[in-house]
Design a protein around this nucleic acid. Sequence first.
DNA 1: GCTACTTATATCAATTAATGATATATTACA
DNA 2: TGTAATATATCATTAATTGATATAAGTAGC
Lengths: 112, 112
Amino acid sequence: MPRTDSLEMGELTDTSYYILLSLLDAKHGYLVMKTIEQMTNNTFSIGPASLYTTIKKLVKAKLIEELEQPDIQNKKTYVTTKNGIQLLKKEVQRRREMVRHAEEIFKAKGEI
Amino acid sequence: MPRTDSLEMGELTDTSYYILLSLLDAKHGYLVMKTIEQMTNNTFSIGPASLYTTIKKLVKAKLIEELEQPDIQNKKTYVTTKNGIQLLKKEVQRRREMVRHAEEIFKAKGEI
DNA sequence: GCTACTTATATCAATTAATGATATATTACA
DNA sequence: TGTAATATATCATTAATTGATATAAGTAGC
């Protein structure tokens, strides 16, 4: 995605979508990876490069934030912000509509 | 979208998703743009650069094909192939599951 | 005939997004 | 001791998208 920043456009890539979803409950980076794998039955996975790169970007965009008090082992803990939740819900709805658009056409053609 | 070709990974970007969906009924390029705008109430639109670039790639991947007999005005007409339909249905299901994953978590948190 | 708009196709350069590879350190456990 | 899992981080590379630009044909109004 080029030429236009998807976050500035108010859209989430699949990677950002799952990170925001996973961080509705505060946790540190590595747990985000594991949570997403578990949540999607390993159909979607994010490697460390994508994870930490995207986390940095989401913090900058204030869609997630780093918590003040790190946990016992000094791991950085993140949580989705109010803005993040709002955008996530919007993006759930956008995907819902993408499915609906397809269902309507398949239905009209007598398929599915 | 980097390092790995999404089509080779068996995934569709939103742009390819809507083009395949629009070409379930054969039509030429320009009509694909107009159909997608209408289908999505102008919430999603593809400009000429994205359109013709993506069409070329989808033809190469045999997810759409150019029809032998062009229409009266010599416009190139395309249609989604059997492989294209199969992948499109898989991608509808993937998006359906992305929505479900979010719904489950929001529900567990008492939201929505 | 002229002008403006829509239809229609096409390409290039630029930018963002994602990731394989790699590095480093700590903890767990056999 | 070794090795596997946990945990964080960065770089260079590649893919996807698109603004800008170009071209040409048709059509509607004056």
